[in-house]
């Protein structure tokens, strides 16, 4: 793999958990931080690419690679860019593509809403991640991103805090940054993204810091 600063993929078992939204917003945040990214849309639904089209283009390239050997193709499109953000399809329907994405990305981010129905999927996701780790030369870092939280900031009590605590108990690395349930994000598909002063800038900063520490 080419020497990139950050290669991260948003993965989950199910659709509709915020993978595409998170990928698009994170790519904008990296761009705003002068870390030019490549956004790889590996979901056959092609939502990230469609979003870019509707928005009149993003300030970084978006390529659609909904193929099982995506990990072998990405370097051809990097063009010296320092970051790759991958939008993986849901594992339950497109396991081969999602595994290809996970073979490329050094950081796997699992967006999770603090709710029992989403936490219930974590054990199968963890099993899947274990299988893909065995295919890699070096293990990927994994992290949980609390998404659609009740509060903007971390709290000491409430659903967000409880989810954070029990995920940590089960050995998951939960990112400090959390993404609140806001119309700003949920209604953003198809439009231009104004990422300044949002949690995604914090997320980009945290991920880059994790990369430096690794």
């Amino acid at each position: 793999m080419a020497d990139v600063l950050l290669s991260c993929a948003f993965v989950n078992l199910k659709p509709g958990v915020g993978k595409t939204t998170s990928a698009v917003w994170l790519a904008h945040a990296l761009c705003a931080m002068d870390v030019p990214p490549l956004l790889v849309d590996s979901d056959p639904a092609g939502s990230a690419l469609r979003w870019s089209e509707l928005a009149g283009g993003f300030p970084f390239p978006v390529v659609a690679l909904p193929v099982g050997d995506v990990h072998r193709c990405i370097d051809d499109f990097l063009g010296g860019r320092q970051a790759v953000v991958l939008d993986a399809p849901q594992l339950e329907d497109h396991a081969r593509i999602a595994r290809g994405v996970m073979r490329h990305a050094d950081e796997w981010i699992v967006p999770v809403t603090p709710a029992p129905i989403e936490l219930d999927r974590m054990a199968p996701i963890q099993a899947e991640m274990g299988e893909v780790q065995s295919l890699r030369a070096e293990p990927a870092r994994t992290a949980v991103l609390l998404n659609r939280t009740n509060r903007r900031e971390s709290t000491r009590t409430g659903p967000d805090a409880d989810a954070r605590e029990v995920l940590a108990e089960r050995g998951f690395d939960v990112l400090d940054t959390q993404i609140a349930r806001l119309d700003l994000y949920s209604q953003s598909f198809g439009g231009p993204v104004q990422v300044e002063n949002t949690a995604y800038m914090d997320l980009a900063g945290e991920l880059l810091k994790r990369r430096e520490g690794a």
Binding site: P114, L119, D120, M122, A123, P124, A127, D162, V166
Partner: peptide, 18 residues
């Protein structure tokens, strides 16, 4: 005890389907 936290813990303990 925190009922919500217990629910979360129970959800995370899901066994893989054999």
């Amino acid at each position: 005890m925190n009922q919500r936290k217990d629910n979360y813990r129970a959800a995370l303990r899901r066994e893989p389907v054999e």
